[in-house]
Nucleic acid binder design. Structure first.
Ligand SMILES: [Mn+2]
Ligand SMILES: [Mn+2]
Ligand SMILES: [Mn+2]
Ligand SMILES: [Mn+2]
Lengths: 259, 259
DNA sequence: CATGTAATTTAGTCGAGCCTAAACCTTTGG
DNA sequence: CCAAAGGTTTAGGCTCGACTAAATTACATG
């Protein structure tokens, strides 16, 4: 009875670097099936050798599984921690934008630091003040307090067939100047965008957004996620958007811990 | 021209421990004329030897002057850094209380962490949203963005003569249960409080606040700062509230760097 | 004025995170 | 099928900020 009931209390609080590593691994694992050392390194702007060192520590504490030379994957415990930080990040971005008038190209850096300092209470107060939003200002889904997230994979604007109209859903929050440009042409989450024309050989893409017809490059279009408006998302059967080790070979095949 | 204009940019950003040390030193220096190693240690809950180590580093970077065995004092540079952190802390406490509904006994811990993570932009947005408050929820004065702060020394409630009425101004933010109790008896900044009776030999003190007549101990009363309402603060000449090395010997004489 | 006590500093250590350089796997292309 | 290339890990080091244990200093007091 005197033994402090440790239950499944998440042990000592995670440090800022640890939380950032777990977030990065989560994202890379989603994209490639497993996170490569060098990808983590460049995501966090540290040397690859530093990543190896941190991975050893994370593995020893049960946050990741590591197969040397083959990458890391989060354990359930690691995924829980990553989603917690991601929730905080996205609630913070939402709050800063909606309540304090931050422009959407400047919230990311702020949230990147605050996510480690804010208490659960603060995050939940902000979420409540906002009416429990489900997406951040860039359209990224906000995990619930108990670790659920919508992981649907959407199409990019670059893939939208000519003549079709879609709803803009999401864009990466990491590139401020891209975000400013998107705001300029009103290509923001919720906006309706029509594919007017696409020049061949990765040429310029003409869109219609409201009354304007901006012309953008294929790089930009490839970074914007959209959802078809003209037809419902998937008329096909129920494709369960294969989650874990099933690496979707998307231009870059990765190694999903084949023992 | 290619040399980055360093101006008086505050060098590399300060770490969280450094900011907390500077704040603690600022407060102790205000009270005793200089900060003693052991006082800093207990304020920050670290070992005295750790403080000596940090002080060496702070001195080498020009944030403090250290006379071995005699304590530290902030340099102008150190004072500026300390007041910046204090401003952030107090703006944060004000915002959390006023906008997010935090109870005043729980804002301190939150601000203690956020103060190191929030950008200047965030702090100024919060300050603007609040209409640039001059005191935090506990009545502590908020330094301006350029480092000005009201350092007036007020009387404690314990010193209020029987029969006099005063305005409650301030109380330490460090003791949550004290704060909860004060809220219970409505003894909060701005409240009018009358000294009804004081039993001899540090006995219980009877107050009147509104219609209630709470009886409190002398310890509590000594922690509450008040300002006379019946007469103006200081009918005497202009006592410039002696600032720097003039240690006000208040029950504990300290050593103000006598070389 | 000697000496005991309390405060402070020094000495030595540690872990977290980072780095560079060198060794080591895996993959791949000739 | 073998060697170069890339990616990864190991080896060795560094700074920051903490600790304990052992000097050292200041001060009070008899
Ligand atoms: Mn972000
Ligand atoms: Mn971060
Ligand atoms: Mn406080
Ligand atoms: Mn702090």
């Amino acid at each position: 009875m005197t033994t402090p009931a440790r239950d499944h209390a998440s042990s000592p609080p995670l440090t800022e670097p640890v939380e950032d590593y777990l977030k990065a691994i989560y994202t890379l694992e989603r994209r490639f099936g497993a996170a490569a050392t060098s990808d983590v390194a460049s995501a966090l702007a540290v040397a690859p050798a530093s990543v190896t060192g941190m991975i050893r520590r994370l593995a020893s504490q049960g946050y990741v599984d590591h197969v040397p030379y083959r990458g890391v994957q989060l354990t359930a415990r690691g995924r829980r921690a990553a989603l917690r930080t991601i929730r905080r990040h996205r609630i913070l971005e939402s709050y800063l934008t909606a309540v304090l008038g931050y422009p959407w190209d400047r919230v990311h850096d702020e949230a990147e630091r605050l996510e480690h300092a804010a208490s659960d209470e603060l995050i939940e107060r902000m979420a409540t003040a906002l009416g429990h939003p489900t997406a951040d200002p860039h359209g990224a889904p906000i995990p619930t307090a108990d670790g659920e997230v919508d992981e649907t994979a959407y199409r990019t604007l670059a893939e939208l067939p000519v003549g079709e109209t879609a709803r803009m859903l999401r864009v990466s929050d990491k590139n401020p100047s891209l975000l400013r440009y998107l705001a300029d042409i009103a290509l923001q989450p919720g906006a309706e965008v029509t594919m007017v024309a696409r020049a061949p050989f990765d040429g310029p893409i003409t869109l219609r957004i409201g009354d304007a017809e901006p012309v953008v490059g294929p790089n930009l279009a490839a970074q914007v996620l959209v959802e078809s408006i003209t037809s419902s998302p998937l008329p096909v059967a129920d494709a369960p958007s294969a989650t874990f080790p099933v690496s979707t070979p998307r231009s870059r095949a990765r190694k999903p811990t084949s023992r």
